[in-house]
Design a protein around this nucleic acid. Structure first.
Length: 547
RNA sequence: GCGCCUGUAGCUCAAUUGGAUAGAGCAUCUGACUUCGGAUCAGAGGGUUGGGGGUUCGAAUCCCUCCAGGCGUGCCA
């Protein structure tokens, strides 16, 4: 697609000369007879110079060798059919063509597990979207860092420690299962039992003051929790560059508050500190007892990160209910002059059960990710019991990832295991199957496809359809990159797989006596394999060899 | 109360971020085939985009209003 950049530039210069500032954008055509369309002329249909514009556009496009055929319709839509040859030459260079001109350092903050709590369904989308964006940014040539940003400090920790103390539980022999049971009990007690609440508040204060006895317990709990989190992440094929958390910045907070106070950026209000930035609701910086909030820690994290890494852009991949929090955070970063870099909340909707309620276990807890994985794995075993464990694991992860990423991230969606493991349909299983089939085909052909060239005049309809779809890769990649929306790529991967299956099913390729036709199809298959693999990389999927 | 979001085919979701005739999958129905891996392919039916008004050459998308749901809202994270 970048072959058309010069054309767009020329058209842009021309229209700017005639009517002033205006940009030209290329879109995928929704007319099956064409590849791309330009819609920027439509709004000038009543412009006095419209005839001049059309005339000069005709001349410019007519000269462009990568355009085979074009039309400018009565209502001034421009339709372009490309010369496939000029694009297929670039199929081998796609990894270079998607590189951005100005690479940046991008930090992705996602995952966000809490100490004492297992990874559960609520973490699924953050992990999937985060991993996908990580790979997309990386493929675009950016320098990318992921930070799991653990909830490893503050009141929840104080609650757990208080419960352990109160019930005289031996912390040295505690394991992850018992720890996970303590968390909800402690949390409930906090709201029901005033005495317990006071104890927890006292412990929280001591934690913030780095009391050595409390810190020792905190260390132990953190260690157990992280081990369990790492185990789950390994099963889900997730990695992180940084394992920072709230505890890493706690020591920065007193200084931060003091400076804000001295600079007159915050003031006392009912004992708490609020930002002097005028907004509704007011932005609360600390609690009235002097202890810290979510926002306090996040602000300190921003300070810490600006010190440690030169980050141009920070993406917080956190569910959309926290919108207000991030609005307040971003306003505060600017108002407090902590940073003038780019900060964005990459919000997403909730995962619901088939009735549209948040996905829970029978007991009413959020479903553990490890259990969800096991159920998915079991379901795949029911479909094909002969798969080895590695393949089963890859397919289970494919299901959990693809079904999540094919939906627009802002939409709440219903998690339906039956549907997502369905043998037919727009599923992760389907795209894996198409790739396995394609690889097997090349294997059976025993021909070195590297040496083959496409002979486009001999293409049949199914060859053309798949090839023309491959050309759109850069378009969808950029769409996903610019909007932080992986679902465009999931949808595109399905589309490609479908077109490959269609070509495959159309006739028996290997038995074709016409070598030109046969070699064409094998070469296209080779490209399909490369593109499908690349898309899987973008989505965080790993191809299986057999299924 | 205030603020934000959602409402698209029977179901689950898209819609190039304001573009042409709103598209997919599932389900339903029809067809291909003793298969280079059928976990497949080809086709059909299915819509007043919650209702009404407005802006625009053009609206599922923007504005107003009503209806129905969800979420967030100064001491959880």
């Amino acid at each position: 697609m970048y072959q058309l950049r010069k054309l767009i530039k020329n058209l842009e210069n021309e229209i700017q000369e005639l009517v002033g500032p205006e940009s030209i954008s290329l879109r995928i055509s929704n007319n099956p007879n064409f590849d791309f369309q330009i819609n920027n002329l439509v709004k000038f249909q009543n412009h006095k110079k419209i005839k001049n514009i059309v005339n000069s556009f005709y001349k410019i496009i007519d000269k462009e060798s990568s355009i085979k055929k074009f039309e400018i319709t009565d209502n001034y839509f421009i339709n372009l059919e490309i010369n496939i040859e000029t694009f297929t030459h670039n199929f081998d260079k796609v990894r270079n063509n998607i590189k951005v001109e100005n690479p940046q350092t991008v930090l992705l903050d996602y995952g966000g597990p809490n100490i004492g709590k297992p990874l559960h369904v609520g973490h699924l989308r953050s992990l999937n979207i985060g991993r996908s964006l990580y790979r997309i940014y990386k493929l675009a040539g950016h320098n990318v860092l992921s930070d799991i940003h653990m909830g490893d400090w503050g009141m929840p920790i104080a609650q757990i420690i208080s419960y352990i103390d109160q019930n005289k539980i031996d912390i040295d022999n505690i394991n992850i299962d018992s720890l996970e049971k303590i968390y909800p009990k402690a949390s409930n007690l906090y709201f029901e039992d005033n005495e317990f609440k006071e104890l927890a508040q006292a412990n929280n204060k001591m934690l913030n003051e780095n009391n050595s006895k409390i810190i020792k317990k905190w260390h132990k709990l953190r260690e157990i929790s992280i081990e369990s989190i790492k185990n789950t992440l390994q099963v889900l094929n997730q990695q992180f560059d940084l394992w920072m958390g709230e505890s890493n910045v706690n020591h920065l907070i007193p200084g931060m508050i003091k400076k804000l106070k001295d600079d007159g950026k915050i003031s006392h209000d009912d004992g708490a500190y609020v930002s002097n930035f005028i907004s509704e609701p007011k932005i609360l910086i600390t609690k009235s007892d002097g202890s810290y909030l979510y926002l306090t820690t996040d602000l300190a994290t921003v300070l810490n990160r600006t010190k440690q890494n030169k980050v141009d852009k920070t993406l917080y991949i956190v569910d959309k209910r926290q919108k207000l929090h991030f609005e307040q955070l971003f306003k505060s970063i600017k108002y407090f002059e902590f940073s003038d870099k780019d900060y964005q909340h990459i919000a997403f909707g909730t995962v619901n059960d088939s009735n549209g309620n948040p996905y829970k276990t029978r007991e009413g807890d959020a479903k553990k990710l490890i259990d969800l994985f096991k159920e998915t794995s079991l379901r795949i075993k029911q479909i094909n019991k002969d798969l080895d464990d590695d393949t089963n694991k890859l397919l289970a992860n494919t299901v959990l990832t693809f079904s999540d990423l094919k939906t627009n991230r802002m939409t709440d969606y219903k998690f339906d295991l039956d549907k997502f493991t369905n043998i037919s349909g727009k599923t992760g299983i389907y795209v894996q199957y198409a790739l396995v089939r394609a690889k097997k085909l090349l294997n059976n052909a025993s021909i070195n496809t590297n040496t083959l060239n496409l002979n486009i005049p001999d293409f049949d309809e199914s060859d053309l359809n798949l090839t023309r779809e491959l050309i759109k890769f850069e378009y969808f990649f950029n769409l996903a990159l610019e909007n932080n929306e992986p679902h465009h790529l999931a949808d595109y991967l399905y589309e490609l797989s479908n077109l490959f299956n269609s070509m495959y099913q159309n006739e028996s390729i290997l038995e074709n006596k016409n070598e030109i036709v046969k070699f064409n199809k094998l070469k296209i298959t080779e490209y399909f394999i490369a593109y499908s693999s690349l898309l899987m990389e973008c989505l965080g999927l790993e191809p299986v060899e057999e299924m």
